[in-house]
Design a protein around this nucleic acid. Structure first.
Lengths: 256, 256
DNA sequence: GAACGCAATAGTGTAGACACTTTCTTGACG
DNA sequence: CGTCAAGAAAGTGTCTACACTATTGCGTTC
């Protein structure tokens, strides 16, 4: 998924850009809005998406809604079954593990390639990026931490020199972002990320691919278990017994 | 124990489905048809896609055409610029290398995971798959070779136990399929794949992750250079000066 | 009282129309 | 002659309408 060519003429190479579509208007706004609804669990996992209702809510017709949903389907947020419509895809604990595993694979590969190919000045850019934010890191708002963290890892991907890796990582990030946010806000969130990142930067400077990959792998794995717990709590909260009013008519629970 | 919290009915498990869309009708057919047009270079790299023309050609309205194009955009086949429409994305030589690199990363990781996790019976499934086709492999039609080859590599991804890897690989395959076909049909195509695959199977049986990954990496890298030449020839053929009839109005030839 | 079938309702899938933007054409002006 | 401008043509983005499918609700039968 996902790249997009930007402007005008066809920029010849597959422009490593990261996000593919830009419908400027309703369609784009619909995409962003619906994505937010998904990310914030306003649209709940397993739930059927009512296009008409959504289109009323957003004040546009069903056409841009459907375009946005199609895009979200390609990106794995929702699924579409023939004559029944779109459903919110639910990321189970298991699916989450798979995604994190993929992320680990991509990031480790990116780190290795970065060590092999990046200019010294580029590596230095990574160092600078981290040093610029490391001090206030712990104290930021969750959204800021999240953005800075994603930025750090994305920068590694960029320095790998392979735009496809950037695209992949960005796409993965988008899918697990809501969970990461939940995890960051969760009481169990420890701030060892700071030391992890510093160590990773150090490995990069030394171009020690092996060690850096190991650190990355551990860094990612470390968050997984915490995230699992956070996810479980979040799902419990969203589907807490007693607020059944939300799920008006859910007789058939088979989804995805 | 673990998941299966009490969210009661809607069990939150993600059905690890891999592919998400299924529009059954015009939209699905449009998707397949357009994708074929792209893969076969009927729609040429850099070219602007005319929705009206396409919809006439397929005998449907623009609505399903646009849905298909949106999907193809998310998958990287085409790009969309705001008020100008969809363009055929052109895979440059450089972009091709990036894609192959990504493929190599995914496949190697999948192989390793397979070695770690797969049941013996599953590994045997891989062996059987290959043995069943190895004999007639060289003599098949290009499309068959391609499908069998993809099937082989996809099976490895499946045996990794991570559906995300399967999805990623499938998506990559789709994007480079047309080039692979060109390469298979190209005179330079040597059939060393047979021995490569056999060696990879052997490594899998021995669960020798290191060696298998090395073989895979070489196997993929080996095809890259051949493919590059094949791609160059193909582009030359498609854009050959003198067949301007095809491109009715291409005043701006600035592409690729 | 429960299962079945049929009508009514809700919802998706596609078509066609219209508004607005981009692109092309033509003609005037330097 | 070349440049620019204005109008015409082509094309996209979105809306509304309608057909067809799935779902719900109700009445009938056993």
């Amino acid at each position: 998924m996902t790249e997009r060519a930007e402007s005008t003429d066809n920029d010849p190479l597959l422009a490593g850009e990261t996000d593919t579509r830009r419908t400027a208007d309703s369609s784009e706004r619909a995409y962003n809005t619906i994505r937010k609804l998904l990310v914030e669990f306003t649209l709940k996992p397993g739930e059927r998406i009512n296009e008409v209702q959504l289109s009323r809510g957003l004040g546009v017709s069903r056409t841009p809604i459907r375009e946005a949903l199609n895009r979200l389907a390609s990106e794995g947020f929702v699924s579409l079954t023939p004559n029944r419509g779109f459903f919110v895809r639910n990321l189970s604990t298991e699916g989450l593990l798979d995604l994190y595993e993929l992320r680990s694979i991509i990031e480790c590969a990116a780190f290795k390639l970065m060590c092999e190919r990046a200019e010294d000045s580029e590596i230095d850019r990574l160092r600078q990026y981290w040093e610029a934010i490391v001090d206030g890191y712990r104290d930021q708002a969750p959204d800021i931490i999240l953005a800075e963290d994603e930025g750090f890892h994305l920068l590694i991907a960029e320095l790998s020199g392979n735009p496809e890796l950037v695209g992949q990582l960005a796409s993965i990030n988008a899918r697990i972002r809501f969970i990461r946010r939940i995890q960051i806000e969760h009481p169990s969130h420890d701030k060892t990320q700071v030391t992890s990142h510093s160590a990773i930067v150090a490995a990069a400077v030394k171009r020690d691919a092996e060690n850096g990959m190991k650190l990355l792998r551990e860094h990612i794995e470390m968050t997984v278990s915490a995230t699992q717990q956070a996810l479980k709590d979040a799902l419990l909260r969203v589907f807490a017994p007693g607020n059944g009013a939300d799920l008006k008519r859910r007789r058939r629970a088979r989804d995805t």
